[in-house]
Amino acid sequence: MSASFSVVIPGSAAPDAPAPATPRHLPNRGGAVNPSADALRARFQGGILRVEVIWGETSVYVERLRLGEIVQWLHDDPSERYDYLSDVTAVEYRDPEQPIEVVWHLRSLPYRRFLRLKVELARDGKTPLEVPTVWSIYKGADWLERECYDMFGIRFVGHPDLRRILMWEQYREGFPLRKDFPLRGRFSRAEQLRQALAANPEARYSMEELTVAQAFEDLPEAMRKRLKGGERTGE
């Protein structure tokens, strides 16, 4: 394993490419398209819905269910090598008719490329708020997807541990970054405080995550009771 330490230099796969420079005078629409977009079109005809270039950044709208396959290809294909996941997030527009977008920002370090993938989730009442996870491809997606679920309620199918991450697990007000969520929350301040004090997230150990869970039945009675009850520990 120690032999695997060698310096990885971004841009090494495209030595002839021009040196990167600060972008200037970007057009609002149009301009240079990321070559990966054409490659994607050629490879997944129906899976690519449309390609937009806004302020020099290429966004590829892909079909919801084929996302996993597309990202896997982008990650593995030797002419793409999108090995770095910058961000996973979602956008909900103020217009309730407009679909919710889930956004992935990918980087290809060997080719120094930046690509935005988008999946639109229509608000027709039929499309579930679900997209495939990319956790199996990028380990870094773990928390990013959990956060997206926590804030928007979008489920990432296949994610091994999709729980709330920023709000506490018993949080009952909903998904804060949705547009129907009021800025100050749904409840009065006193009620919010009461729920927060009652939740006491610190006393939870999330037993299911621990290897101790397998030995749960062997634990002493008192400890089992305490861990199960979620009551205050250590006091």
């Binding site: 709000m167 506490w168 919010q192 405080l193 729920q195 927060a196 004090l197 939740a199 006491n200 997230p201 610190e202 205050r232 006091e235």
Partner: peptide, 14 residues
């Protein structure tokens, strides 16, 4: 934040 409120309360009690 609200998530920290019980923690702060408990530290004060300690």
């Amino acid at each position: 934040p609200f998530k920290l409120a019980p923690v702060l309360r408990r530290i004060w009690q300690q």
